[in-house]
Amino acid sequence: MTDLRIGVIGLGLRGNLAAVAHRPGHGSRVTAVAELDPVLRQEGARRFDAKPYADHREMLGDIDAVLLLTPDDTHADLACEILRAGVPAFVEKPLDITLDRCDQILRTARDSGTRLYVGHNMRHMPVVRLMREIIQRGDIGAVKSVWVRHFVGHGGDFYFKDWHAQRSRVTGLLLQKAAHDLDVVHWLAGGYTRRVQAFGDLMVYGPLPRRAPGTAKPDDWFAPAANWPPLSQTGLNPEVDVEDVSVMNMVLDNGVIGAYQQCHFTPDYWRNYTVIGDAGRLENFGNGPGGAVKVWNARRSGYREDADAVHEIPAADGGHGGADPRILAEFFRFVRHGGPTETSPVAARMSVAAGIQATASLRNGGAPMEVPELDPGLVTYFESGQAAQRP
């Protein structure tokens, strides 16, 4: 099997996916890197023995697929250029930061007939797949409610020291960070959010010391031992105007009721899901090996730690609990052969839509907001597997 020639656009925090994609002799090889930062660009070229480009458009004729790993607010413009050039695109989540821009990407993919894939890698995480298997097996009956608590223990480092801290670049962290979990809620519950209501605030990081405009993050920007407690953080982004704590309620189109809570100044970093059905409930304790998903479904009782079933979370190699190599393997298979995928451009758009409307709600006193539906023609195109491919 000839290696796919992979072009990478953006070598920032998610640029580590390029290393996962680079498997010479095993199906994929990074042959081109495009990055505005000349230092990162040359480092990437040396690391992968790839051709460096300052202008991504110059490489599109010499590659088989693109990994688009740039900041969220750049996705639509870049993705549409890639798709119009006929190059299959992996777009890192979230799809973009406005609904108009998300829908523009989907329309361009359909109109060009070029394959589009969105990097919602949590659908490939063992803990999420285990919860979905339990639900699909019927162990808790029909899903009626999903609750998520997201403890973002390194939030001050990862989300308040660069562009993630700016509304103009991300809309809000109920979109940027929560898009993963909103997609999982939809996947586990079997529906999409139609109505949201949320509250949130910038409670801790707002008054903390910030860098001067135009200055780079310090080399020790991620130092968990030194940056605790959260009020000791320094060197924050010059502009900080996103919320560091938020709570969101949602009603799905199938009647399921959900809740999502996100906090960026907790001491621990993990996600806790509770899924309640009409015949039991499940809850995960930990997100990886050593953790478990517990199920209570045999009888009523008071509090009891001894669940009726305990399912250990499987071990898997690779970043994000083994999700990164698996999502890229699926993307490369999709590039070569098409067919169904676990991820979905429609689902990616709907997670953005829920996050945008929840952000609007929390910035308008918690007013309930309706989530706009997607053009039915686009839904049909993507749910049919993007079958109308360009020759």
Rank of each mutant, 00 (worst) to 15 (best):
A34Y: 05
S301N: 10
T74F: 15
W228L: 06
R167S: 09
M59Q: 09
V204S: 12
L208H: 03
F90M: 02
A387D: 07
R57D: 07
N121F: 13
E342P: 00
A109S: 12
G61H: 14
N284I: 02
D278H: 08
G286K: 05
Y260Q: 05
A323K: 04
R47A: 15
V143W: 00
Q197A: 08
M350I: 01
V275N: 02
L173I: 07
Q262Y: 00
P126Q: 03
H124Q: 07
T341F: 12
V87K: 09
L78G: 03
P126V: 07
A353E: 07
I276Q: 11
I63H: 08
R5E: 13
I6F: 01
R137I: 02
A85D: 05
F48W: 05
S384P: 03
G255Y: 12
A298H: 15
A309P: 05
S344T: 01
L231T: 15
L68F: 05
L202R: 12
Q166E: 15
P213A: 06
L83R: 10
V371T: 00
R211P: 00
Q357N: 11
T171G: 02
G214W: 05
N237T: 00
D96C: 06
D201F: 09
D72G: 11
M203S: 15
A358W: 00
G255V: 14
A32Y: 04
G290D: 12
N254A: 04
H264T: 04
G355E: 00
V91F: 08
Y192C: 09
Q389L: 15
H154G: 15
F199C: 06
G286A: 09
Y381K: 14
E373V: 14
V33N: 05
G86E: 01
T114S: 14
T234H: 03
V242M: 11
G141H: 08
P325H: 03
G288W: 04
A165M: 08
